[in-house]
Computed example of a mutant assay.
Amino acid sequence: MTALRPSVRDHHPARPSTTSEQPTPPAPESHPGPPASDRPAPGRRDADAMAVASFVCGLVGLLVMNLVLGPVAIVLAGLALLRGTTRPGRARLGLVLGIADLAVLAFLVSADHTWSWSIG
Rank of each mutant, 00 (worst) to 15 (best):
E29T: 09
D46T: 12
R83W: 08
A51D: 05
R87N: 06
R39K: 12
A36S: 10
A27N: 04
V68E: 13
P42L: 11
T85I: 00
P23I: 03
P71R: 09
H31K: 11
P88D: 03
P42T: 03
G89H: 04
P40I: 06
P35L: 09
G58H: 10
V64S: 10
I74A: 10
A41G: 06
V56Q: 14
R39F: 00
R90D: 01
S54I: 04
P40L: 11
A27H: 07
G89K: 02
S37V: 11
A49E: 10
R83A: 14
L79T: 05
L76W: 11
H31L: 15
L62F: 01
G43L: 12
D38L: 15
M50D: 14
L59W: 12
A80F: 03
D38I: 01
G33L: 08
L79F: 11
V64N: 09
P26C: 07
A51I: 02
P88R: 07
V52A: 10
P32V: 05
P32I: 03
T24R: 14
V52Q: 11
V56Y: 04
G61I: 06
G84F: 04
P34I: 05
R92Q: 12
A47N: 03
R44P: 00
T24K: 11
P42V: 05
P34V: 10
V75Y: 10
C57G: 02
L82P: 00
H31C: 06
V75R: 07
L93V: 09
T85L: 02
R83P: 02
S54E: 00
A53V: 00
N66Q: 15
A51V: 02
P25N: 06
T24A: 13
P28L: 06
R87K: 15
S30I: 09
P88T: 06
L62Q: 15
P34L: 15
Q22R: 14
P88S: 08
G70K: 08
R83L: 12
G70L: 04
A73Y: 06
